[in-house]
Amino acid sequence: MSSAIEPSIKSRPVYGTLKPATAPAHLIIADADGGKAVLDLATAAPTSFLPNAEICYIPGKADHSVTLEALGAARFYTGPSIAAMLPRLKRTFERMHMGTQIYLAGSESLIGLAMKTAMEANIDFEAIQTEHRGSLARRVQCVHCKGITEGVTTQPVTCAHCGLLLLVRDHYSRRYAAFQGVNINAEDPSDIPPKEEVFT
């Protein structure tokens, strides 16, 4: 098993395994250990696949960029962070040809943010293939101040914007690419539960 995501509520995203689609072009976006899913995808693909593929990769904590570049895709991009890649991704989605298959692999933040960017370019999220590998760290939107806290690994977590102690729910918004955080001790602010590392 590459992903340790437990079955949960209906808004919590579920991910599959990347499979080469029959398509004129392929856009592959990955971070960190998502690179391994891209290697598996390339191994399973016919010879016509890589000459029609673009790979966008953010190494993060597990760098597979040398191996990925050596695959010889038509275009290969690597960048320092997901945030740095998003403007480029936005433009790529806007000019993408009809029928291009999109593949997302890696952390939930990478998958969520790339999907959000695609949806903003009017791409149907249900046509996108996804595979989760690596970190379960979450993007969490504080329902109170609306600020987003990145890389959340603890339950509860302190909102990086307003400082409220948040319960991280499994309720997930594709538009925000974020899980919902709700003040955990609103009824009694003096009750401060300990933080546990749960999203790793």
Partner: peptide
């Protein structure tokens, strides 16, 4: 929260309700 749930489908926005699913 409408702001959080806007854009969700019927099952997704009801996701937090227990037992009914």
């Amino acid at each position: 929260s409408l702001d959080f749930d806007i854009g969700m489908n019927f099952f997704e926005w009801h996701a937090p309700v227990p037992l009914a699913h």
